[in-house]
């Protein structure tokens, strides 16, 4: 049994009391998209922060705004998308005020990125070693030999077997899990302080996923980088995140540290999501699914967006959109956007 693979080994959460050491602070972010079907807010009024050494999960189903949030931070929104309000502060500096060139310098050097599909992100006709070397080269004045050595060292660091042999391979020769490790090597090549990982294990087998999540933990323990982990998978959050922001239809509805989110969820959506997870079913017992479906951007309701699927919704939920209100929970930084969360915990 390997000690490095138990949940208990998650690094302790950094002290959130001091604002001094905040790595990334997103404040009241609103991002809108415009398309043939009209305009809509993909993200509305989202606020959260990440400390060094912390893994923050953005958790939600399709269309909840988690990827739009990540792309807003990275300044990689497609043409149809635009940040219309809010601040994105990296080490105190507002990224929205930077020029394209300045932002390009931050991406990669300060903020690394890993996406779901590595095959789409890699050049099919260049060896993976060359592609890692490309990222290394950007980090400064290194000789060709140093670049090559560093690239191979990085491939070893992400625990690829025989890194020298792997370096010569073209992407299509490697499995999905190995390619994701190559992407991680590229992402950490310049020693970023923050890693944005968008569904990094969603396309992988669970056996391979477990190894990648272990790798994230190990790299974080070594370098102290913060990780923004975007996922739809509650189990990935349970295994890796220090905190989670639960998103629904463009808004953060609950914010809680691990394991409070799992032990004492407060928003009816989080509660229902946990309760309807197949792994929670006792053998032979039926799960109660959440009724209805995730609303599309044009189907969002007035007031609380979850109210048509919520078992405790009342008249007020249709009239007033609930704000994300901090909870006074000793020792835990928590917030929930529900008028009736006191009632929800008795669900």
């Amino acid at each position: 049994m390997k000690a490095g693979s138990t949940l208990r080994d998650r690094a302790p959460s950094p002290d959130r009391g001091s604002r001094r050491s905040v790595l990334l602070e997103v404040a009241a972010l609103t991002t809108r998209f415009e398309g043939a079907g009209g305009a809509w807010a993909a993200v509305e009024d989202a606020s959260f922060r990440i400390l060094p050494g912390e893994t923050l999960a953005l958790l939600g189903e399709s269309g909840c705004g988690k990827t739009a949030t990540a792309l807003s931070i990275l300044d990689l929104l497609p043409r149809s998308g635009r940040i219309v309000a809010g601040e994105i502060r990296y080490r105190g500096e507002d990224l929205r005020k930077l020029s394209r060139a300045e932002m390009r310098a931050i991406r990669g050097a300060e903020i690394g990125m890993v996406f779901q599909d590595p095959l789409a992100a890699l050049d099919p006709v260049q060896s993976v070693g060359q592609q890692v070397a490309e990222a290394v080269r950007l980090s400064g004045n290194l000789s060709r030999r140093q670049v090559r050595e560093r690239a191979i060292e990085l491939l070893g660091k992400v625990e690829l077997p025989e890194p020298e042999r792997i370096a010569r391979e073209l992407p299509h020769r490697l499995s999905g899990g190995m390619l994701q490790r190559v992407m991680i090597a590229i992402a950490i090549a310049r020693g970023p302080s923050l890693l944005v990982a968008d569904e990094p294990t969603s396309a992988l087998d669970t056996t391979v996923q477990a190894g990648i999540l272990d790798l994230f933990r190990r790299l974080q323990a070594e370098s102290g980088m913060g990780i923004l982990l975007i996922t739809h998978d509650l189990a990935v959050v349970a295994q890796n995140a220090h905190r989670a922001e639960v998103m629904y239809a463009g808004r953060i509805v609950e914010s809680a540290p691990f394991p409070d989110l799992f032990l004492r969820p407060r928003h009816p959506y989080t509660i229902a999501l946990l309760r309807s997870h197949p792994s929670r079913a006792a053998r032979g017992r039926r799960l109660e699914p959440i009724p209805g479906r995730v609303p599309g951007p044009a189907e969002r309701l007035s007031g609380c967006r979850f109210r048509d699927r919520c078992p405790i919704a009342k008249a007020r939920c249709a009239e007033v959109e609930p704000a994300l209100i901090p909870l006074s929970v000793p020792g835990a930084e928590r917030a929930v956007a529900c008028h009736y969360d006191e009632e929800a915990i008795r669900l």
């Binding site: 490095g4 949940l7 077997p161 190995m178 189990a235 990935v236 799992f262 946990l274 929670r280």
Partner: peptide, 19 residues
């Protein structure tokens, strides 16, 4: 390797090596 939701539950063993 089956992802678990239970806080504090250990995966029990090292991830399966290799591919």
């Amino acid at each position: 390797a089956m992802p678990k939701l239970e806080p504090g539950s250990s995966r029990g063993s090292a991830p399966l090596p290799g591919e």
